[in-house]
Structure formats: C-alpha cells, structure tokens
Design a protein around this nucleic acid. Sequence first.
DNA 1: CCAAGTTTGTGCCTACTAGGCTAAAACTCG
DNA 2: CGAGTTTTAGCCTAGTAGGCACAAACTTGG
Lengths: 262, 262
Amino acid sequence: MRGTGAEADINEKDEPGHDGGGVERPMTHPRPQSPHGPGVAAHEVLAVVFQIRQDRLSVLLWRRGRPPFEHHWVLPGGELGHAEGLDESIRRQLAQKVDVRELTHLEQLETRGAPDRHPQGRTLATAYLGLVPADIDPVIPADTAWHTASDLPLMGFDHAAIVTSGRRRLRAKLSYTNIGFALAPPEFTMSELSRYYRAALGHDVAATNLRRVLLRRGQIEETGESVPSGRSGGRPAAMFRFRARQLEITDAFAVLRPPARA
Amino acid sequence: MRGTGAEADINEKDEPGHDGGGVERPMTHPRPQSPHGPGVAAHEVLAVVFQIRQDRLSVLLWRRGRPPFEHHWVLPGGELGHAEGLDESIRRQLAQKVDVRELTHLEQLETRGAPDRHPQGRTLATAYLGLVPADIDPVIPADTAWHTASDLPLMGFDHAAIVTSGRRRLRAKLSYTNIGFALAPPEFTMSELSRYYRAALGHDVAATNLRRVLLRRGQIEETGESVPSGRSGGRPAAMFRFRARQLEITDAFAVLRPPARA
DNA sequence: CCAAGTTTGTGCCTACTAGGCTAAAACTCG
DNA sequence: CGAGTTTTAGCCTAGTAGGCACAAACTTGG
C-alpha cells in the first residue's frame, strides 16, 4: 500500500471557475495537481438508437460532413450544454434527429474516456441506449440513415464499439425485463412480436413459447381484438399489448432469493 | 419532428484546444453553439469500494477536510488527469487509499451530470464499483474509514445515491454472475461464503442451497482440503475456491435462448 | 360446398433450476 | 460414551423454459 503521496488532492476540487456564468472560462492558473493535470475535458453525449425495421435490428447513424472521420458514420449526439444534465442533453440532441415522443426507452449505457478517442482533443462521451417502436417511420434529416446493426458501415471514433455495447445491453434486457414494450407497437400479434425478438436477439424465437413466457410473467395481455387473418389464409391472430410502458425487471428471475418465510 | 435547427453542430467538435499540451487551456473564443454553450466540464472519477467486514457490507469513505461538505463523508476518487483513461484514473486514485492488488473487481457503474451536483461548479462524475475480498485488511489513510452500507453517515454531493446504485448492481450480479469470487477469499468454507452472500444480499442464504447452485453452475470447486472443525465442535468443513477470477455471466440464465438444434 | 393448405392457439410432455426439509456424517466437549 | 454442533447428502416440491403434436380457424381453388 502506498497512500502517503497526495491524498490531499483526492476528491478536492476548489475550482474557481465553473461559476455557471459565461462561455469564456477562467481556468488560467495551473494548479499544483500531481503530474496529472486538471480534470477538465470536453464532454459529449451520444445515443445508440435502435429500431426494428424490416425484421432487422437497425441503428440510427449520422454521416459526418467534415474531418476528422469525414464521410464516416457516427452516432447521433453532440456536446453537453454548460447547464445541462446528461439525460436532458441527449434528449435535446436526439430531438434534432428523431421526435422525442417516438423514443419509448432511453437509458445510460456507458462512458468512454480513452485519451486518444478523439483525434482533435480530449473528449469524454457518455452513451445512451434509445429505442423506437417498430410501427413508426420517423422523419429523419438527410444526413442520417438507418443501418443494419449486424452490418455496420465504416464508423468514426469508437462508435462501432458503442453500438456493440448497446446490442449486448438490449439482448440481455430482453431476457429479464419487459423492454420489448419499447420495440413493439402498442398492439401486435404474437408472430409479429416474435419477429421483433428474433431481430433483436439474432436467433429464432418461437411465438408459442414467447407467448407463454410473457403471459406468465404478466408482461403482455390480450386486447380482445384480432386481425382478420392474412391473405394466405390461416387462423386469425389475437392482438396483444404490453401491460407496462416503463422498464420493469422480472423479479422471479433473481436467483438466491430471500427465504420463503422471511 | 423538428430537426431543422442546428444539426450542423451535432457531433461536431472542432475544438482548437485539447492539444494535450499544457495546463493552461486556450478555449478563449466562444463558439456559436446554440444556446447551450460548449461541452466542457470538470470530470472526476469516484469509486464505491465494497468489502464484507464482520459480516456487514461496508463501503470505503473519505472524510472531507474542507468545504463544500466539510466533515461530510464522500467516495474516494478525484479529478481525471488530462491524459488519463477513466479506468486508469480510478485505479490511480484508489491506489492512494487501497492497494490496487487488493481490488479483485472493478467496473464502471454510472455517470452523473446534474448541473447542480457540485456547488462549486459544473462537475461530471463517473462512478465505479470496486470489490475487495473479505480476508484482507487494507491499510487505509487516516481520513478514510469503512462504513456499514446500510447505515451510512452524512454524505456529501450525490454520493449516497451512488452507493445505492452500487449496492443494487452488486446484488444483481451476485445472482447471475460469479462475482462472489471478488468478495470471498481465495479459499473458503460454504458457511463462510453464505455469510458473505448474506451480507451483500441483505437476507439469509442457506449454505446448502448456495453450495448446490454454485457447484452446478461450475463456479466453485472443492480444494480437497478441509478445516479441522471449529472450537464448538461439528463436522469439519470442506474448502472451496472459485474456479475463475474474472467476471463471467451465467449463460444458462438467459431466457428466450436460441433454439436447441440451431 | 368441400378439400387442401396455412397460420394461430392449446395441451402435454420433458428438462432444468432453485430451494425446503430431513437425516446422516463427522466432529468437540464433558 | 453420550449430548450437542456443524456440515453434507438425499429426497422432495415448485416453478420456468421450451419442444412437439394436434386442434382451431381461417383462405383459396376446384
């Protein structure tokens, strides 16, 4: 154990600046701060926005118009405003790509801070995972497009790795939460829903089993209506809906649970 | 959908500064940047370091010596160095409290960025979850101490909420990963291990069931040795060890798994 | 109107996991 | 040696996921 060095500066910040005032920032006198320099950096927020489009998990990307990474694809987002919270900021930035009302889920994913992740200077990025239901087709700016998540274009910065994190998070949460509500339209048949799950999970999902599992968990319920059978025949399908539109964790899923008569 | 406004600045950062050079920072001319200002803020890294001490989940806290929040308790950590990665930074900062070799697990927890979370100016914080095994008693500086997680002292900033996040994360991961390896000593009996789990989970964990579950999952194995029975009698207990010392997810735990013959 | 084809829904079965309970095993102490 | 204590093994129940076969309910074409 070392610990005799510079504890004094740990968790101390006596910054004079940050007065919430203007854009020009005092930060003039370098403080004695061990060989590490002050903890000030540009900060951006990014979002991995997924939607199931034509049975494929797709991610909303933005095509950069200038260097670095000109003509590469990047995640939507931008710089954190000086008086903005992180959630607030990503919502604002996304509103310029996708209508916020179309975002059915948004959660923080991870923060990346490798010193060289941005070629033009130190920039931290906090990434979010956002979901858009499959039934809408948002109007998006000309320089953005949906890309199949399993077949990404050339991407800038570390954004491809962030998409991978987002996919992993989504896949995991489909197992133990009701997050499907954010991918599916308000009402759906079981075969539709199983296609959404298949696209997001990357493997077949039997509609029969999906129905049983989600019904037993109480995540979905029948609406009472049914669709008048497809053009190729077949029994008409019942319509379902998710009962909650907020993220809920499947509690029966916790192992090593408290004893029965506790 | 709005989207006609200032897309141009989204994800664009043409910062001239951040040249990795010195402590004094150019950042002089305010850029036209919508009414939100530039995305530059102080950034600190914090850690929720847990250890099971005397059958209680305990967290390492640091007592602040100066305002704001003088004499309140805060999480260990400090400012991000100007050329440091986030993981690198929290490891460096923690090394001044606890020997890094004693940290058996470290993962990113969450990033907080409420504009008013720091009374002296905008400061983002990326929090980590760290674990120290129960068998060691790290030498810690005089101004730090272990506190029972369920009975926290008066804490500064939003750090109490971060501890709560850490507890939730730890609890969840005890269910579906082998994270116990990071709480337990290299070798242990099942009754010891069940005490660690009880402390972390907050409820009784039957040693019989814990043994079965972890053995079936292949997380633990018998060492072959046994302890020569306690002073109060009883059958001598077999010693176990975790088979891996890296985080692994219990895959059999995923629901909606790929079809059998896929 | 009926037969064939198609899709959805139900029932039955298996496999696996967690967890409660009891009894046996293996020790200490008096 | 017997009583008390602790660990371990065995047996049982409950709950969940998932495969499969068949019934139900439709469309289409003769």
